[in-house]
Design a protein around this nucleic acid. Structure first.
Length: 422
RNA sequence: GGAGAGGUGGCCGAGCCAGGUUGAAGGCGCUUCCCUGCUAAGGAAGUGAGGGGUACUGCCCCUCCGUGGGUUCAAAUCCCACCCUCUCCGCCA
């Protein structure tokens, strides 16, 4: 949720953010009105409560004859206090709901508009010159790396097996990603993929993204769609040492996504699946350092994709296409030869203090006061999509696939050839 | 799955079955100062969070002892429900 003080002091900034997102700026005024009502209720309750307490404090020491009169008065007061309490609770709840309805305030410079209104920030690498590119599934099947047919037989649509070199490629990618993360100063983590409602709710995935989340009804647990959830939840309810910031974690987890509303989209191969593994970077920083950290996360994503020798572009996602908790998002989109277009491979979001307020994650600053930290997340390697881009961009006319130099030490070969299965 | 124990401030840990200056003893940690050639040890003081008010850098008030209800003039302290954690047994790995 956003900062109440920002709402009160600079409502126009929040309204402008809402407009840029194509969201309702009226929510700002609704929240302001709810805040006004809440403060009135607080005043009424506190006045009554203070009187009740001051009289109550004198009762034990009061003379016997005064005692009866005091008891009678506080008895009446108790009724009023209770009523004021109810009124206050309702006002607080209404204000909280109004505040939570407002999306995170975007960072200055984020392009306005919807999905199509992104701005291209960078184009890296050169597009491969492939006469008649085959798609990743054709290549992967020929190499004995991907088995979608059996994935569907066992688990249904959008499931797959990685077999032989396919499985080895995943392990090599995860190792390369973790090696880079560790070298960069991230603490490697293997995290829970099942989380309680509080973690899911706090990270903001039960809002408009709820339909894409798997829920285990019998146990009241959720399957995470990204390690962002357990990594953000890691410090929930804590007060961190401000001097220790930034805290950087690289989490490996399976990711589960229902892909509701994507019927007919990306049905071939493993580009869009219900389950995949991913190495995710997550940073807790001082709010003033968030934008710089966002650039750093993007830099590490670019470094990883470049190491894989993939051509890609970086886009500044438009406000209307941001999730509720992101204040800015950079996507790295790799070139997919069989589709002749760029597709999202990684994504880095700056959630400023939006998530940490919901999750109650604070850090003690120089003044000794705890204040919400900023949280940021960025994909280092979403395995299946990386495999897609790798197979397609590095395919050779003879049906083999070139292994980029950085990956060779982890995979053990410089080329993947048909017939060399295992 | 069966049986117990427990959830208190940044942390540990009293208080709760004698309900009323207990926002909460004590310790650790932290901050400042003293001592010291430096460090350590030692000594002194201070040190929770959230919210509201304001004649607003000082003060006043309210709330918070897992969560939500209840009893009471008054609850960390009594009652109920729920959540969570831990231990033992069984089971599985």
């Amino acid at each position: 949720m956003i900062d109440v003080r920002l709402l009160r002091d600079e409502p126009e900034r929040v309204r402008a953010s809402q407009r840029a997102r194509r969201a309702d700026p009226g929510l700002v005024d609704a929240a302001l009105a709810a805040d006004e009502a809440r403060r009135g209720a607080i005043g009424r309750f506190e006045a009554l409560r203070a009187e009740q307490r001051s009289i109550g404090a004198g009762i034990p020491s009061a003379a016997a004859d005064e005692k009866a009169a005091l008891l009678a008065r506080t008895k009446d007061l108790a009724v009023d206090v209770k009523a004021a309490q109810v009124e206050l609770d309702e006002a607080e709840a209404a204000f909280d709901a109004a505040l939570r309805a407002i999306d995170n305030v975007i960072v200055d410079g984020v392009p306005e508009g919807g999905e199509e209104d992104f701005v291209v920030l960078d184009e890296i690498g050169t597009l491969p010159d492939i006469a008649d590119p085959r798609d990743h599934l054709a290549i992967g099947e020929a190499l004995g790396m991907i088995d979608v047919e059996r994935g569907v037989k066992v688990s249904g649509s959008r499931f797959y097996y990685l077999t032989g070199w396919g499985a080895r490629l995943e392990l090599a990618l995860v190792n390369l990603a973790m090696a880079q993360a560790i070298e960069t100063g991230f603490t490697p983590m293997v995290v829970p993929a099942l989380v309680r409602p509080a973690a899911m709710e706090g990270t903001g995935f039960l809002g408009q993204a709820a339909e894409n989340v798997y829920r285990l009804e019998a146990d009241d647990l959720y399957l995470v769609g990204t390690a962002e959830v357990p990594l953000a939840g890691y410090h929930m309810g804590e007060v961190l040492d401000g001097a220790a910031l930034p805290l950087r974690y690289a989490g490996l987890s399976p990711c589960f996504r229902r892909e509701a509303g994507t019927y007919g989209k990306d049905t071939r191969g493993i580009f869009r699946v219900h389950q995949f593994d991913k190495v995710e970077m997550f940073s807790y920083t001082h709010p003033d350092d968030a934008e710089a950290e966002h650039e750093r996360l993007l830099g590490w994503e670019k470094r990883f994709l470049s190491a894989l020798e993939l051509p890609f572009r970086v886009i500044d996602v438009a406000a209307g296409d941001l999730g509720a908790s992101a204040a800015r998002k950079f996507d790295c989109e790799a070139w997919i030869p069989s589709q002749g277009r760029y597709r999202e491979l990684t994504s880095a979001s700056n959630c400023t203090t939006f998530q940490s307020r919901r999750l109650d994650i604070r850090a003690r600053g120089d003044d000794g006061r705890p204040a919400p930290v900023a949280t940021l997340n960025g994909t280092l390697c979403a395995v299946t999509r990386t495999i897609v881009a790798l197979l397609e961009n590095h395919q050779q006319p003879d049906g083999s696939v070139r292994v980029p130099a950085a990956l060779q030490p982890h995979l053990g070969v410089d080329t993947l050839r048909p017939g060399e299965d295992r």
